[in-house]
């Protein structure tokens, strides 16, 4: 099995307001198609780690590889293209563009990628929304959706470009237990059937236990289990 994500000796400091060593000697690998929850206490550095892995934050020491490609030190433009093509990101706080409908929000990253025509993109976006039971809200302005609905649209958006890896920061934070189950079922299915690697921060320990492997963080370190 090939490696989707490799982290080597990553350290990160916050310098403001005072120097704070937020991540210490992080090293781990995630295989292709693996579904890995990340757990840990609030404030232990889970979100910070995810921002590094998603290439949004480039201020760290160590090395990060995705698909065997070293991303550390790449230019911002290259990283942007890489994110667009390979990484689906679901934020801890659901973020959609308020002037666009749910469907359009899902379509935008595919427009940016520019590999498919408008019709195909729309079709795929509708498929993703349907999987998340959001197809009936497709043409509603995203600012008019409830928190949980927005979160599901955000997940559909992360899936649109068929990324090799999806990183999610508490994607079910606003969802009821039924929808939470729905999201995790989709994630499992994506990883096991479509071979997409999924790394998701969660506080849902029951669910985490059911996963193949769990990464547990304590005070900016990975706890060896």
């Amino acid at each position: 099995m090939s490696i989707a994500l490799k982290v080597e000796n990553v350290n990160k400091y916050f310098r403001e307001p005072e120097e704070f060593h937020v991540l210490t000697d992080i090293s781990f690998c995630v295989n292709k198609g693996e579904f890995v929850p990340v757990i840990g206490k609030s404030g232990c550095g889970k979100s910070t780690l995810l921002y590094l892995l998603s290439t949004l934050d480039t201020d760290y020491q160590g090395k990060i590889f995705i698909n065997d490609q070293l991303l550390t030190g790449e230019s911002q433009n290259n990283l942007a293209r890489f994110r667009n093509e390979n990484i689906g990101f679901v934020f801890q706080f659901h973020f959609l563009l308020p002037e666009f409908t749910a469907l359009e929000n899902v379509m935008l990253p595919a427009f940016k990628l520019g590999k498919l025509g408008r019709e195909e993109i729309e079709e795929q976006a509708m498929d993703k929304l349907r999987e998340l039971q959001m197809d009936t809200f497709a043409n509603k302005l995203s600012s008019r959706l409830s928190g949980g609905q927005q979160q599901r649209v955000a997940i559909a958006r992360a899936l649109i470009n068929n990324p090799t890896i999806i990183m999610a920061d508490e994607p079910t934070g606003n969802l009821d237990s039924i929808n939470t189950g729905l999201v995790f079922d989709i994630f499992k299915e994506l990883s096991h059937q479509n071979g997409i690697t999924i790394l998701t921060v969660t506080h849902d320990l029951d669910f985490a236990k059911s996963a193949d492997r769990v990464i547990e963080m304590v005070d900016g370190r990975i706890k060896n289990s």
Binding site: L56, N77, N84, F95, L96, L97, P98, K112
Partner: peptide, 16 residues
């Protein structure tokens, strides 16, 4: 600002 951050996270470059 929020929209810009979202767009960037999804792979829109500075030029975009």
């Amino acid at each position: 600002m929020k929209d810009i951050a979202i767009l960037k996270a999804q792979g829109f470059s500075g030029h975009d």
